[in-house]
Amino acid sequence: MSLLNNLEHPTDARIWRGDLPVYHRYTAGVAGEKFLRALKDQGAVYGTRCPTCGYVYVPARLYCERDATHLDDSTWAPVGPAGALVSFSAVWVDLDGKRLDAPQWVGLVRLKGASSVLMHYLQTPTGALHAGMTVQAVLKPANERVGSITDIAYFKPL
């Protein structure tokens, strides 16, 4: 017997609305704080190189996820600002699925000296993009930087 057989008046079924009345405050973390401050103050993108396995994380991390090695101050070094475009896309819809007037270009960039890739905006290209081409980070002016990954305005093809 289906439980639905007990529904004598289908109009009894109704919708109840609710939400989750919370918001979140995220710290950048120990490594994130240092990474973002260097971006803001020095205009430099830092990575950390694992002394055990040689992997270079960008953004810089506190530890190596491959072997749990602590990535201390001695492992920090600037990378880029140029790098190789690994992949790219032109995005025509926003978060709610609404069509955009002009596409937003995004890409994955392996900065020179990095092992990991970074997701970021690409400058609207004038010519064809291809994987492997060289792109370079374009930073916002120093007085507009706030200590956020968006202090890098975008990457532009060289």
């Binding site: 639905l4 079924a13 919708i15 918001y23 995220y26 704080e33």
Partner: peptide, 22 residues
């Protein structure tokens, strides 16, 4: 310290179901 705030946009419409509807 550096931090970001994020307001999750989570709104729900729950079906009351048979028993609770009644």
């Amino acid at each position: 310290v550096l931090f970001e705030t994020w307001h999750v946009k989570a709104e729900y419409a729950w079906d009351t179901g048979v028993a609770i509807g009644k």
